[in-house]
Design a protein around this nucleic acid. Sequence first.
DNA 1: TATTTATTTCCATAATTGTAGAAGTTCTTT
DNA 2: AAAGAACTTCTACAATTATGGAAATAAATA
Lengths: 255, 255
Amino acid sequence: MTEKTRTRVGAIDRSLQILDLLTERHQPMTAYDLARSTGAPVSTIYKLVEELLERSMLSRVGENGIWLGPRLMRYGLTYRARMDVFAEARREMNRLSENLGETVQICARDEGMMTVIGMARASGHFNVASDVGTRVPLNWTASGRLLLGHLDDETRLRIFTESARPSETGQAETDPARLSRLAREEFEARLAVQMSASEFAVACIAAPICDESGACLATISIVLPETRARAAYDELTREVQNSARTIETALGRRG
Amino acid sequence: MTEKTRTRVGAIDRSLQILDLLTERHQPMTAYDLARSTGAPVSTIYKLVEELLERSMLSRVGENGIWLGPRLMRYGLTYRARMDVFAEARREMNRLSENLGETVQICARDEGMMTVIGMARASGHFNVASDVGTRVPLNWTASGRLLLGHLDDETRLRIFTESARPSETGQAETDPARLSRLAREEFEARLAVQMSASEFAVACIAAPICDESGACLATISIVLPETRARAAYDELTREVQNSARTIETALGRRG
DNA sequence: TATTTATTTCCATAATTGTAGAAGTTCTTT
DNA sequence: AAAGAACTTCTACAATTATGGAAATAAATA
């Protein structure tokens, strides 16, 4: 019984057969032709095509031509945008770390938390940065606040209300209203700086990386001793902002 | 009896719920979170996610993150490539942008929305144009209206009724009847001009790109400061119309 | 004109699949 | 250590749906 007579094919597989055929042929086909080419019953294809048309996964061209739908392009663009952002961000992170000789991190949001998703360690000895995978509440870090900066007031407030928690050092701001305001200000300045909030004597200088719609996808930040941060403040803030900008424009220049 | 108790949701709709959620959030989610956000039973989502993963419609990132899959990019790219209008349009877009020293965009329709599918930025600093991938309701822009111009009265009215929404600036027309009439007039004039509706002090001068059957496939438009638009109105409208015409005739020579 | 092929729609039914429910893990928080 | 939340997997069954078959135009071909 391991070898069953497969009599029916599920909606997803049939849909993919259709999409694959159109993709291969690179041109519209009729529903009837789709039925013949897939070997599926005509009634099946007609019903399915209708359903997919309604949902913009397919589109009509001319009288009875069926072609891929605009919805697929939306998904495709979103998929690629994110891939590109992180490939580009990783490259820039390494370059920046090399340049300054400091530890650089890439962080992203995961609901009410912030996760370190990439790190380039400084070759030096000072080692205070959290490892890749570390998750902390958004209100603990400069990056965390930036990651909410593009959202509307209500949403920021809600997320901070639900997720803000005292840090271990007790230094992190926990008031949702103040956090929300700060997040917006820093986001608009494209810069957030934090001295000694999550750990003592550690500074973090962060800039937001936004997609074409203005949403903050990630942050790039320099993590270093407070003394060094104060000493080279202007250069460091400029550099991290430039890196964020570089990542963003590297994507904008695509065809 | 018109309102049935819909007990089950089909595979396609559930899949699209998942893809839409990921597209909206612009970041990976867990299967569990997908279940909660869609309101679907967890077992349903887990099974479906597994199936979609197998077929590369979704991909895993990290430990338990679910993200859009590479297959979607393939479809998306094919969708875009086939629109041979766009190859030609892109070329002409660049030429026009170079000629005038202004930002030029190509836009297409996606149901009740308009998507920016191509852009040539002016070398200058003025930068107000929305990036590639931006989607806004059809009633927000001159291009949006043109994209419905070839449809019959009833259809235009229906689409505007279903999709027209106030813009952020509150300046966009939202009345379906007026929109529908305007769309037709502009389409017949092969020109739509809009001053400061989607953004302040920004003008958009758009012309329709039609296929051999007369359907508006896309638009080409100049996006620039309102002052410059008024100053060179005649030249700009003439140029953008010429570009649209050039694209159309370039396609007429195809098989 | 006759004949075939292409195209679309409809119905009844078997076959599949989405769902409820529960139980088992792993990770956080108390 | 205990409790809870987040996460994952499993089973059995009812609800849905893919399918075969047929009918009916329209278009192409003989």
